[in-house]
Write a protein that binds this DNA or RNA. Structure first.
Length: 453
RNA sequence: GGCCCGGUGGCAGAGUGGUUAUGCAGCGGUUUGCAAAACCGUGUACAUCGGUUCAAUUCCGGUCCGGGCCUCCA
């Protein structure tokens, strides 16, 4: 198998992936802040990096995939207060819907899903180290990271300190020594969640949790750190600053991967713009697998416009692939080489899907092994794991169910009888009746199958 | 204002210094009681203006247009 190439934000280039330990690859991805349901934009990194991990598992004996849950954040406090429920209840409820959503998207769970509030000690230890090493200072109940103490600050986002000062749009808090300094720890009042610390009762800043949890589960330096494009600055830049300065290391992770945005009418889908569609809502309207296929239909770094048309195209594509694959069971070691080559080239999922369609064509022509190759290749994308019949009979809108399977079977039997009697008028009447209920009949050599429109 | 990334056929979306992406939609055909599916055939797309080159959609530069980050955001 060829080498895996990944676009590394650190270098701005595709690079050969060389793991620190080929027998154990370590990956960290930033997970959700649990104050509300995730939207389809949030679903993109979940699906894309799930594919990355599946691909890595094909090639490496052990992969540890960590995706955190941020359960301490001022947005959580605010939302809990708005809804008049406890912070804990809000977090538990949101985590539940999150897990429901990732399951519908067909994504595997990460190996470890650490929660920020379970790692306050580790964060405090790291902050203490940063103060001792002269990278952080205490001011007015806050602890701040002093950006000027790190020569290479800004390397990931490729911006200089001068650029940042020139572009600064934020008012500088009075306790900061320098405008770009960021918070490691901040004081909490009695209404806010807080933990005792050497700097008084308080709570962590946004970035320190990822540094602390990545270290706890993956070590000081690991292979891949992934997340959305909008996390490059400041979040990932600051994680690097914290981790590298605390550990005296050159790198936090060797490869930094960032996915592009899902757009709505070519504009970024984001909570602050309010143009969001939640995964829960989307998967009531479309099957999770359709959404997953749509999310993989563009290269992960390119923008992806998720219109109704895009969803329809994804569904049509899956229809064709499922028809080709039939009732075949997956064979794990039959991944098509051309297909794999597409994914190895910086996770080129659109090219990989194109190859799946070629395999479907070959399978339809009866080419030996094509079905197995199609099924086991698709598994790397987390697609096509049902049988064709299971897929065909699930309505796109799961809740709609005005005609049940037995009623359909009864009508099909009646039509079969009519056809045997060469009463084609009657047969066509039944076809039309089912068609009106969005049931499409297909007569094959070995009988009649049906699917929902 | 600073920094970054894009503009491919009706739509979506890869890719390439000279040769078919792929899917959907369309058109023609084979097949079918009808239909669907499948198969076969079918489209001189690469924002614009210059430059380099025997040859550029592909490399370089300008222009126009779009998007993103610089503030919570995947």
């Amino acid at each position: 198998m060829n080498v895996l190439r990944l676009y590394n934000t650190l270098s701005g280039k595709k690079e050969d992936f060389k793991p620190i330990d080929p027998a154990h690859v370590r990956v960290y991805a930033c997970g959700p802040t649990v104050y509300g349901r995730i939207h389809v934009g949030n679903a993109r990194p979940i699906v894309v990096f799930d594919v990355l991990v599946r691909l890595l598992r094909l090639r490496h004996a052990k992969v540890t995939y960590v995706r955190n849950i941020t359960d301490v954040d001022d947005k959580i406090n605010l939302r809990a207060a708005e809804r008049g429920i406890s912070i804990n209840d809000l977090c538990e409820e949101t985590i539940k819907t999150f897990h429901n959503d990732t399951a519908r998207l067909g994504s595997f769970d990460p190996d470890i899903e650490p929660r920020a509030t379970h790692h306050i000690d580790e964060m405090q230890a790291m902050i203490t180290t940063l103060i001792e090493k002269g990278h952080a200072y205490e001011a007015d109940g806050h602890v701040l990271f002093q950006v000027s103490s790190m020569d290479t600050y800004g390397a990931l986002s490729q911006r200089s300190m001068d650029d940042m000062i020139a572009g600064a749009r934020v008012e500088v808090a009075p306790y900061k020594r320098e405008a770009a300094d960021f918070i490691l720890w901040k004081p909490s009042n009695d209404d806010q969640p807080g933990w005792d610390s050497p700097w008084g009762r308080g709570r962590p800043g946004w970035h320190i949790e990822c540094s602390a949890m990545a270290k706890a589960y993956l070590g000081e330096v690991f292979d891949i750190h992934a997340g959305g494009l909008d996390l490059i600055f400041p979040h990932h830049e600051n994680e690097i600053a914290q981790s590298c300065c605390a550990h005296d290391s050159k790198h936090m992770a060797h490869y930094w991967l960032h996915n592009g945005f899902v757009t709505m009418n070519d504009e970024k889908m984001s909570k602050s713009l309010g143009n969001i569609i939640s995964v829960t809502d989307a998967s009531n309207k479309y099957r999770g697998e359709t959404l997953r296929a749509a999310l993989l239909s563009a290269h992960y770094r390119a923008p992806l416009d998720l219109s109704h048309n895009a969803m329809r195209d994804a569904r049509n594509g899956l229809d064709r692939l499922y028809r080709a694959v039939g009732e075949f069971a997956a064979v794990p070691d039959r991944v098509d080489e051309e297909f794999a080559a597409c994914l190895l080239d910086d996770l080129n999922t659109p090219a990989a899907l194109a190859r799946l369609h070629e395999l479907a064509g070959l399978a339809n022509k009866g080419k030996a092994g094509a079905c197995e190759a199609l099924k086991s290749s698709a598994a790397v994308l987390g697609l096509l794991q049902q049988t064709a019949n299971e897929w065909a009979r699930t309505d796109e809108t799961v809740t709609k169910d005005d005609i049940d399977d037995t009623a359909i079977d009864v009508l099909i039997m009646a039509r079969k009888q009519a056809r045997a009697n060469r009463d084609f008028a009657k047969a066509d009447e039944i076809r039309d009746q089912l068609d009106k209920a969005d049931i499409i009949l297909e007569d094959n050599v070995d009988g009649t199958t049906w699917r929902r429109r």
